[in-house]
Simulated assay, not measured.
Amino acid sequence: MAYKTILVHLDEAPHAGARVLLAAELALQHDAHVIGVALTGVSRFLYQNEMVDEQDPNLARHLDVLRERAAHALAGFAPQLRALGVQSFEERVLDDEPGAGLSLVARHADLAIVGQVLPDQRGSAAGFPAEVLTESGCPVLVLPHTARPRGSISVSAAGVASPGAPLPGRDVLVAWNASKEAARAVREALPLLRRAEQVTVAILDAELHPALFGNEPGADVVAWLGRHGVAAQVTLAASPRHGLLKRPSQVGETLLALAAERGCDLMVLGAFGHSRLRETLLGGVTRAVLDGMTVPVLMAH
């Protein structure tokens, strides 16, 4: 398995350049095609329902501004990929909202790369990564808003970019709760896990779910990974408890603390959705990780 089509969301956020560098290095490693997408934010349903009249001069000026901003977000994409040695790529400006538009394109991709929602936008746009996760059917690699491009990347004769790229996956923390979402995330992460120098399977509160984890928690998932050429180790931990209750946000915080303590540069997490409402589209653990992440997180739903 390899990532042969990589989608990257481009906007005017400070860390957008880091997404392009990551997409470039993954493309070189997997001989992949990269699709760079910028969106105007105008819902496609307005066009489908004929609610938008582009001949209206006021609306036309507004749409022109939105499209110019999207084009500006794409401005450095092609030159940067060419300079890095990526041969196969395309760029698109879409008239759509970010979540809905990216979800459509991602249905024909192996991996989507997006950025963490900026802290001052979480009240209104927190559903963006959630929407791509739940509506695209594609694994999503979320980069933290602290990610920055780290200089130019030199490309070897073999077509592999130098370690100067912000490529995660040398030391990976796999959040394992034996759910189908976690299993899906691990499968989708296998191309990265095979290249990792160290993989840690983190299991929280295993004693509370003996039917899920058995007598030796983590043994089955470690054996499964081993058959794919991934050497993994298990770490058991407990999340904070208040009386008889464990708060999902504290489980997420415990996972983030484990990743920081071990110096991990990537987390693999199954996204659990339990509500049709956008505001609660993700489970509490997933939302806590997305809000507090300082390392990239690969998620699947």
Rank of each mutant, 00 (worst) to 15 (best):
A2D: 12
T5Q: 14
V8D: 03
L10Q: 14
E12W: 01
A13P: 01
H15I: 04
A18S: 05
V20K: 09
L21A: 08
L21K: 10
L26S: 02
A27I: 02
L28Y: 01
L28I: 01
H30P: 03
H30R: 03
V34Y: 06
V37N: 00
V37T: 06
L39W: 01
T40R: 04
F45Y: 07
L46G: 15
N49E: 12
N49D: 09
N58D: 14
N58Q: 09
H62G: 05
H62Q: 11
D64I: 00
V65T: 15
V65N: 11
L66H: 02
A71R: 14
A71K: 14
L74V: 14
A75E: 14
F77C: 08
L81W: 03
R82S: 15
A83K: 10
G85S: 07
V86M: 11
V86F: 10
Q87Y: 03
Q87I: 09
F89V: 11
E90C: 02
R92C: 02
V93A: 05
D95F: 08
E97M: 08
S103C: 00
S103Q: 02
L104F: 08
V105T: 05
H108L: 10
H108A: 12
A109F: 02
D110I: 04
L111K: 03
V114Y: 00
G115Y: 00
V117C: 06
L118Y: 05
R122I: 11
A125Q: 13
A126G: 00
F128M: 15
L133M: 13
E135P: 02
E135V: 07
C138I: 07
V140W: 10
V142T: 05
A147G: 00
G151C: 05
G151F: 09
S154G: 08
S156P: 02
A157Y: 06
A161S: 03
G164C: 05
P166M: 07
P168S: 08
P168Y: 13
D171Q: 14
L173S: 03
E181R: 10
A185E: 06
L192G: 08
R194N: 01
E197A: 07
Q198K: 12
V199D: 02
T200F: 02
A202N: 06
L204S: 11
L204Q: 12
L204H: 06
D205W: 06
D205H: 08
E207R: 01
L208R: 15
P210N: 06
A211V: 09
G214D: 12
G214I: 01
E216N: 10
R227T: 04
G229W: 15
A232I: 06
Q233H: 14
A237C: 09
P240C: 02
P240A: 12
G243C: 02
G243D: 03
G243L: 05
K246L: 04
K246N: 07
P248A: 01
G252V: 11
T254P: 10
T254V: 01
A259N: 11
A259H: 10
R262D: 12
D265S: 09
A271P: 08
F272P: 05
G273D: 10
R276T: 04
R278I: 07
T280A: 03
G284K: 13
T286G: 13
T286S: 15
A288H: 13
D291L: 08
D291T: 14
M293P: 09
V295S: 13
V297K: 11
M299E: 11
M299F: 10
H301A: 06
